[in-house]
Design a protein around this nucleic acid. Structure first.
Lengths: 344, 344
DNA sequence: TTGTATGCGTTATCAA
DNA sequence: TTGATAACGCATACAA
């Protein structure tokens, strides 16, 4: 029985490995992190000793000694919103094979909460930070600028990046969906929006630009609420919109929860889709193509955003900063049955 | 300019605070963790020094010195499945006000992956571990038993807990939904199941028990696949089931993605719900009550499971182990339009 | 209630 | 290529 130290739980340490392999502790450390800088004979001995003892490095000690934790700090506004769940999944999938852990924070769409979490994250000296959106508070932005690690802003692209960016244009996405509806003949197209965070605002701006270009814009067509999005809210907003504008012949929804709510309400009220009302959504959840009628939506590359953000951060960590610091992954308008009708 | 140490990034340390406050470092340490054990005068001075310097404790150094990281390790099989996203949200919400961080791991429904992640997590000496399900591999179970921290198994309850448990009976939930459908007059009730993880299996067992009790069980009524669940898969499974058993008059779906797929397919194929086909789901996603027709489902307390798991772990950490080591949070059958029809 | 000495497990530094 | 030494920043043990 090897003697147990006073406080440790008796787990083998790097010294135990060194002793068993007959080398210095620092050589073990190197063999683990930069195998190519250790002679093959020693490396083999060390590997044997490691597996014999079942040695696992202590990440805390490692972080303390190297002044750098192998942690990616990730800040998202919601954990349950499928969009961010997919982003987070992309991040985890890209990180699972390496040494990096993930530190996830839920800002609840609050800038102050983001500041607070940033401070907590920073205290660990993370290897990289991934934050959602481009509208950080001045304080949060300062934290990020002084962070001494790669920073990736995700979901959107825009001018004046803190460091790196991966996303797409919400304005363009909103514009494309709206322009499509106009193109196929809808005229009184309402905008339904919940939460109205900065990205929702830009989708609305895209909608408005398209409507104004066609001289169809009417403020009464816009129905928004700061309330968090949900399917039931989609139903409610639609009812409001219809009450306000009985001649409504289409809706562009801020996201697919809302569009699903609209679809169900149309069924319930026997409103024909796409004949009487056309529906476009945003994000293109899996179910939109299965719905009946299938729902037109703007497909957003959320999983890919997570992967790309990690790839860029990893590159920056390893010294080779990506040539492109801002990556626009685009979107794709998926035209489906809910907006398929003869031009009128 | 205070002299910067060789490696540190120049952040103030506990010694800096101690010097400024004119006390020993250990007193600062105590003032931060156990304020009541430090005299009020010193405490005030220390607090002033802390905020003046902008001191934030280094969690890595703290973990190293105390042989205990303020981290909750959380293992879930999926990040995007709304059920687990809600559980995770409950966990984060319960932990956001304290010193604990969350270390999240995605096992992808793989026992081996769970073992691997457990080893990674354990290397940090977490304050507590929360794992999904009660069917850990023998190796994973051994890791957990030797973990030297509170362990909570979530989602299900069952005999032989490793330590603590929070969940509900999936068998009972499946039984209740099926019994309800039988009760209101459905006879040829199919079971649709995807993924078929252990919890799905137990829902199936509940279905089978109810069907057998009514002498309605027929193996041809059961349609399952190991493929991950999705709305489109619900549609496909339903088509298969209908092809196999044309007399089908109802389906109990393993989860609400599937039931939504069934609902849409019924719309598309002009199959009347609930008259021709009755539908029951599982989990009761928000949208089920908005769907048309609204869908009967078994409501599961997933957010609450996350909160309760954290509460129990916190209690155990602070020495006061909960009197009840296994908590059954139950479920609730929500009867809606999709199974509302006169008895036949 | 407060402080001193020491150790936590690892890596950076510098020399061999 | 390898190793001895000294941090890293904090908490434990023990003494005052």
């Amino acid at each position: 029985m090897r003697p147990r130290s006073r406080r440790g739980g008796g787990r083998p340490t790097i010294s135990d490995v060194a002793r068993l392999a007959g080398v210095g502790a620092i050589t073990v450390s190197r063999a683990l992190r930069q195998p190519e800088r250790v002679s093959e004979s020693l490396r083999t001995q060390i590997e044997r000793a490691v597996s014999e003892l079942g040695y696992v490095p202590d990440p805390n000690a490692r972080a303390l000694a190297s002044a750098r934790a192998e942690v990616f700090g990730v800040l998202v506004p919601s954990l349950t919103n499928n969009v961010f769940a997919e982003v987070v999944r992309g991040i985890y999938d890209s990180l699972s094979d390496g040494p990096f852990r993930v530190q996830l924070g839920n800002t609840h769409y609050s800038g102050l909460e983001e500041e607070r979490l940033l401070q907590v994250f920073l205290s660990q000296r993370p290897a990289a930070l991934i934050v959602s959106g481009i509208d950080q508070t001045p304080t949060a932005r300062r934290f990020l600028e002084e962070a001494d690690c790669p920073v990736v802003q995700i979901m959107e692209t825009g001018p004046d990046p803190i460091d790196m960016m991966v996303g797409f244009s919400h304005f363009d996405g909103g514009h494309a969906a709206t322009a499509h509806m106009i193109e196929v003949g809808y005229r009184r197209i309402g905008f339904l929006g919940a939460r109205m965070d900065p990205r929702s605002q830009r989708r609305l701006a895209g909608y408005r630009a398209a409507m104004e270009a066609a001289e169809l814009y009417d403020p009464r067509l816009v129905t928004t609420t700061p309330v968090p999005s949900s399917v039931s809210l989609g139903r409610d907003l639609f009812r409001h919109a219809l009450a306000k504008v009985p001649t409504l012949d289409g809706v562009f929804c801020n996201n697919d929860d809302l569009s699903l709510g609209v679809l169900f309400e149309c069924h319930r009220a026997s409103i024909e889709v796409p004949q009487t009302i056309g529906i476009s959504g945003f994000n293109d959840l899996d179910m939109m193509q299965v719905a009946f009628p299938s729902v037109t939506s703007v497909r957003t590359p959320r999983y890919e955003i997570g992967r790309q953000a990690v790839a860029m951060a990893k590159a920056a960590i390893s010294g080779t900063r990506p040539e492109l610091l801002t990556v626009d992954l685009g979107y794709e308008l998926k035209v489906r049955e809910s907006t398929t009708r003869p031009k009128s």
